[in-house]
Write a protein that binds this DNA or RNA. Sequence first.
RNA 1: GCGCCGGUAGCUCAGCUGGAUAGAGUACUAGACUACGAAUCUAGUGGUCGGAGGUUCGACUCCUUCCCGGCGCGCCA
Length: 576
Amino acid sequence: MLTQVRAQTADFVHAAIIRNFSLASWGKSALEAALEVPKKLEHGHLALPVFPLAKELKKAPPLIAKELCDALMASDDAFRKSAIVSVLPAGGFVNVTFHDSYLQDVLLAAVKDESAIGRSEKGRGKKLVIDYVSPNVAKPMHIGHLRATVIGQAIRNLAATQGFDVVGLNHLGDWGVQFGKLAWAYFEWGTEYDFKTKPFDSLFAIYVRFHDEAEKNPELDAKGSLVFKQLEEGEPKVTALWKEFIDISMKEYDRLLGLLGVKHDLVRGESFYNDRLKAVEAMLEKKGLLEESDGAMVVRLGDEMPPCLIRKADGASLYATRDIASAIYRHEELKADINLYVVGAEQTLHFKQVFKVLELMGFEWAKNCHHISFGAYRFPEGKMSTRRGRTIFFEDVVDQGIAMIGKVIDAKNPDLEGKEKIAEQVGVGAIIFNDLAVDRVRDVEFNWEKALSFEGDSGPFVQYAHVRCLSLVRKYGKPAPDTFAKALTETEERELVRLLLGYQDMIAAAFTTFRPNIVAQYLLEVCGAFSRFYNKHRILGEAADVESSRMALVEATRRVLAAGLRTLNIQAPTAM
RNA sequence: GCGCCGGUAGCUCAGCUGGAUAGAGUACUAGACUACGAAUCUAGUGGUCGGAGGUUCGACUCCUUCCCGGCGCGCCA
C-alpha cells in the first residue's frame, strides 16, 4: 500500500485508539508499522491486528476489534468520510476497506510521472558503491558471472530508485602469480596462437595449456613465479604484456556484459591497490592488531572466527589485505556511504573477516559494508570447474536464449517486424528473469529448459502482458485518460488496483533486503491479475465511461510493469 | 570436528519484519479463440512445510536438538 495511504490511516486509527481506549503504549509509528496488507482483498486493503492490545486492556481481541471498528466508523474524520468505505472486525483484526474511487485516484497520481514510479528519497545525497561481476583476466566468463551480473545490476537499479548516487565497480582480477605464468606461457608459445584476430581465445588457450603442462611438469610453476616477480618489480617488457592481457580481457568482458546492457562505472583492479597495502599493514601494526603466527602476520578475531591472514611468511600480501585496502579506498576516496559486494556464497567467511578487521581498526562505517552473497549453479555431474570443462559459458547461455526465442517467434508470430531485435530482448529477458525469480542465496541446478522457459512464470510472460497493455493503448487510439470516469468495482479490477498500489512498498523491501526476487515475484502477481482481468472483461468497445476507466487501469498496469522490468534490467518490447 | 546457507505439491520454486483457509509455474485431466494478441485464461488432481521438542493469542517464519544436501575453515583469489 502506498505510504501516504498507510500514514493517513495510521493517523486516523491512532487518534481513535487514544480517544477510546486511553492507551499510550502504541505510538503512531508503531501503529503504522503494525498495519499490514492482507493477502486477500476480502480482508480489506489494510488490516490492524489488535492482539497486542489484549493484555493491556484485559479484553478479548475480537471485542477490542469490534469496539474499535464502531468507534472508527462513527468518526467525523474527514479522511474517514472521503476515503474509507468500511472498517470491519474479523476475529482480532480490524479490516479497513477504502473507496474504489479513492484508491484509483491515488494510483493514477502515483503513476503519473513514469520515471518516478516507486521512487523514494531515502538515499538522497548518499553514495552507494556496488562491486559486482569482477572477472579474472584471461578467463572466460561463465554462468556464475552471469548470475553475479544479473543480481548486481538489479540491486544497482534498485538503489537508484531509492535516490542513491550509485557507482558500479569492477574489482577486476588483474594481479597474482597467474600473470607470471601467463606471461611465461606467452613468451614460450605465443607465436603458435592467433592473437591478431582471436586475442581472447588465444589468451585463454595458453592459460589452459600452461596448467595442463604444469601438471606434468611442476617446474613450470617456479618459472611463472619468477616472471611474476619481474612484473612486481616493474620490468617493462613484462609490464607491457600484462597491460595487453588486461586490455584484451576488458574488451571481451565489455562485449559480454553489453549483451545484458551492463556497464560498470569504474574499473579498479586488484593491482590498483598494490601501493596501498603497506599502509594497511602499518595501520594494523599501529593499532596493535597484527600478530605473528607460524611466520605469517595475522589479525586475531576472537572465538567466533578464524584469524585473518594479512601477510604470508614470505612477505607477500594476501587477498584480505587487498580487500581491506579496497574498502578504505571506497569509503575515503569514492565517498561510499554504503559498500556492497556481490560475490558468491563461498566467500562468506572471507568478507566476515574483512569487515571484522575494519571494525577492529576503528572504522565505524564497517557496518555499512555488506556481502551480497548468492548460491552456486550445480550440475548433475558435480561442481563447476573451468579447467575441467565442466562449465557453461556466459555467452552460450545468452546465445541459446536468443536462438530459442527466435524459434518461438517463427512459430507464433512469423511476420513480426524486427524479429531479431525482439528475440534478443525476450531471450535475454527470459534468462535474467529466470535467475532473479529465485532467492539469490539458493543454489540452483542448471537446466536449459528451465533457464530458457517462455511459458508460465517467466520473463516472457511479463513482457507479454506488457505488450498486450501497449497493444490496447495503441488500438484505443488516443492517450489513456488521466482520470477515472467511473470507479471500477469488478473483483479483477479491484485486485489489480490493489496490487499496483503495492509497488512502492515492494521496491523498498527489495532494496533493503537486497533481494531482486521480490520484484520478479511481484511482477508475476501483477501479470496474473492483469491476465485474469483481461480475459474476463472486455475493454475496448464498452460504454464510454467503462472503456476509458479500464484504459486508465491498463495504462497504469503498463507503466508499473515497465518500471519493474527496468529495475531488473529487462527490456520491454513493444511487440513480440 | 566447528561455522554459514538450504530442505515447502511428482518436478522447479514463492511465501516480505511471526498474522486470517500454505500459494504459483510445470506435469497430468477437462474446458475457453466469429471479442481488445491463446507466450493467455478457467476448473480439477496433488501438502506430516525434513523429524522431534519449545516460545507465542497465533509458527513455513523465532529458539533448542537431530537428520539430509551444499559451501567454508592460515599463508589461492
